[in-house]
Write a protein that binds this DNA or RNA. Structure first.
Lengths: 235, 235
DNA sequence: TGTACATCAGTGAACGCGCGTTCACTGATGTAC
DNA sequence: TGTACATCAGTGAACGCGCGTTCACTGATGTAC
């Protein structure tokens, strides 16, 4: 697995080959079948591993921020976000394995779903905790009429998130109990917005879309993330 | 080229093969070298083609909106954005070729840079035109202190954008002249934010990151884009 | 303590596959006088 | 109108490559009595 991880880091998921992995550990290619069912199986393991690594990074940063300054939601949000970016920039191929183009011919099995939500949940927990503590003060939103089906979906999503948070509470939410469906549909919308923006920005940085335009990536990310916090109502 | 485009649409860039393209048009594999220098050359052409298609889509939508309601910046922004999303959703593999994981072993030559900016320029032109017409009314921003190097970069970028707009003016800016460096550093920051968010959201939709969470993609995109317009100050 | 056997990690050869690229070639189409 | 030649599009065979996967195997390590 370590060799596979190294190879992934070097050539990316699309170029990953069982034979090359075997070569690197000085094994004959058929020997890796002792440890792995197939190439797809190897990919799945790498995906789960990467999701877990990213998720743990986010959770640790979030918990550390709580330990430092309980109730300082803004700083907790910012450092969780920076932890996510840091890990992504340090592991670009793993990031792309998770959020980039799908690997041709590979279909992700169900096992990858749960670990895939960890980082996102760590982020949303910051918002939910602030909301639960009555500290969420979003600026008055622009008046945009949402179509009913979308509103319905956001409400449902708020519920899903609420129970997901509740079921994993205690792992790092040392401060307060997750209080049920604390998020409004509007908060969920803004969170979705923030989430896609964060990952969009990180993705652009990694795939170098911003070449010739931006070099101060970390500062730009920081400013972006603080703007998002403001929109969410984190103080 | 048409066959190559079809094949790209089917299997994606990483799975694209000269031999398969040749097969589809009923040619022997060596015959395609009459038309293309190498596989990389074919990829480059496809990239340029895709950038141009996306760019033209955006430019047309923008121009059409101006023709319908001159000065209605918000609607112009919204329909340009929707045109970009529409094209992307309809051409997922081409989108991923441009904005997804880099194809292993391929390095984009310089020729792809200019067409790569068309869609972005179409978007930024909407903002610049509104600013030039004195119609840009952004809400008071959250007070976030930008580090000096970032501010410097944003100012430079504003200048670059200004001259890029000026040099391509007239092509679709039928309404008004692009008035020099109309954008403030702050407007550039918010635009970058909007840009990454739009493409982040589209990318997530295409790679299906939002599975099980959102199905009302178009409505979500619309709401997002309108929020962004509000932040930019478009009315 | 010693023997008999099962488990296990890894070997090496082979399979069939599709790929990008080269090269000398054929035959049709166009051009010059 | 007819001949001579150049250009051009496409052929077919071959190259060397790396891939995922299978299969029968070897030899070391562990376990039972």
């Amino acid at each position: 697995m370590a060799a596979a991880r190294r190879q992934l880091a070097e050539v990316g998921a699309a170029g990953l080959s069982l034979r090359e992995v075997a070569r690197e550990i000085g094994m004959v290619s058929s020997a890796v079948y002792r440890y792995v069912d197939s190439r797809d199986d190897l990919l799945t393991r790498l995906i789960v591993e990467a999701y877990d690594a990213l998720g743990e990074t986010a959770e640790r940063a979030s918990a550390a921020a709580v330990a430092r300054h309980p109730g300082a939601d803004l700083e907790r949000w910012v450092s969780t976000a920076h932890a996510i970016r840091r890990w992504s920039i340090d592991h670009p191929h793993q990031y792309l394995l998770l959020f980039g183009s799908p690997v041709p011919g590979y279909v992700a099995p169900q096992d990858t779903v749960a670990p895939g939500t960890r980082a996102t949940l760590a982020l949303v927990r910051v918002v939910a905790d602030a909301a639960g503590g009555g500290r969420l003060m979003p600026p008055s939103p622009p008046d945009i009429v949402l179509p009913a089906p979308l509103t319905g979906e956001l409400v449902t999503l708020a519920g899903t998130v609420g129970s997901a948070l509740a079921s994993t509470a205690g792992s790092d939410a040392s401060e307060e109990l997750s209080a049920g469906p604390a998020l409004s549909a509007d908060a969920v919308l803004v969170f979705l917005t923030a989430w896609t923006q964060m990952f969009g920005l990180i993705g652009f940085e990694i795939t170098n879309q911003t070449r010739n335009m931006v070099s101060e990536h970390e500062a730009l990310f920081d400013a972006t993330v603080r703007r998002l916090a403001h929109q969410l109502g984190l103080r």
